[in-house]
């Protein structure tokens, strides 16, 4: 009897795990198959007012203004662009380490009536490039890459570059 009950419990646990896994997947895929909307998506089909959604794109070069709010919290204003359209974003809080001009970001918030996106959360995306600081500096010095303008040049051009000066 106890063994039977144990088996039943394990089986129910299995079913629960698998069921919730499937439910999570379905829920996640319905809401987050499109994890974020781009500024062009918004221009084409604006979401209903006062509905929270995620806005994603690159931080426009030269658009970041940092300040300290009345409550002492850091605030930031910047524009999120996908090349065709751009949207102004305001955010109060600490920005993640990877946040910079030219970086991909995903922000959660609401679009105000003034057309400004009020973000309650800013997440920075990482692109797929991994390079030592010296290599990044060398690319920047040589004029091959301005990180604030977008993605790094094709990897074949730098992934074997010697990071040591004169090396």
């Amino acid at each position: 009897m106890t063994r039977k009950r144990r088996r039943l419990a394990i089986l129910l646990l299995c079913g629960l795990g698998l069921g919730s896994a499937t439910a999570l997947t379905l829920a996640a895929f319905r809401d987050n198959l499109v994890f974020f909307l781009s500024p062009s998506d918004l221009a084409a089909k604006p979401p209903p007012a006062d509905r929270a959604f995620r806005l994603g794109g690159l931080v426009e070069a030269g658009s970041v203004e940092r300040a300290t709010g009345a409550d002492g919290r850091p605030t930031a204003r910047f524009r999120v662009t996908d090349g065709a359209h751009a949207i102004s974003v305001v955010y109060a809080g600490i920005l993640p380490d990877l946040f910079r001009e030219g970086q991909g970001v995903v922000t959660l918030g609401r679009l105000g009536p003034d057309g400004v996106f009020h973000a309650s959360e800013v997440l920075a995306r990482h692109d797929e490039t991994y390079m030592p600081p010296e290599v990044a500096d060398a690319l920047k010095r040589a004029g091959h890459w301005d990180p604030s303008q977008g993605a790094a040049p094709p990897a074949g051009g730098w992934n074997t570059l010697s990071p040591r000066p004169g090396g």
Partner: peptide, 19 residues
């Protein structure tokens, strides 16, 4: 799909995007 997670750096077509 668009995700927060970045695309593959190593197992992709073309040169690995990793030094």
């Amino acid at each position: 799909w668009n995700t927060l997670h970045q695309p593959a750096s190593v197992t992709r077509l073309g040169a690995p995007a990793m030094h």
